[in-house]
Amino acid sequence: MIQAPDLPLWAAIAVGFLVLLGASITLIGALGLLRLRNFYERIHPPTLGSTLGTGCILIASMICFSTLHSRPMVHEVLIAIFVTLTTPITLMLLARAALYRDRSEGSAGVPQDLESVSASDIQQFAPDQP
């Protein structure tokens, strides 16, 4: 299914380059999701696709529709704002849930609580201090 809108040369080059760049960045993020070993490492790479990948493809879509309809069409900004607002919320909720689950099970390799680490270090290095 090879087809494309009839754009002038500069717009075609810009749209093609941005679409390809955004898709490659999203694929790199998905490969990171596949390859990294730990859940707390794996939670980072999908944000590559949700920030830079989405941004590139949305800018390409804006250029394409603005050139096709010969007036500025920026309704893609809606998706950009929405994704930018929601990605940190979902991933922070998910990381907190995973931390809670891992800590309640006492499994190994869990990031430690900063306050408990500093308290135990103080007791370790200065045992006579209360």
């Binding site: 299914m1 090879i2 087809q3 494309a4 809108p5 009839d6 754009l7 002038p8 040369l9 075609a12 080059i13 749209v15 093609g16 380059f17 679409v19 390809l20 955004g22 898709a23 493809i57």
Partner: peptide
Amino acid sequence: MSTLFLALAITAAQ
């Protein structure tokens, strides 16, 4: 020409 380039780029991205 530009249409062919754009079509190939979009298909590769998909």
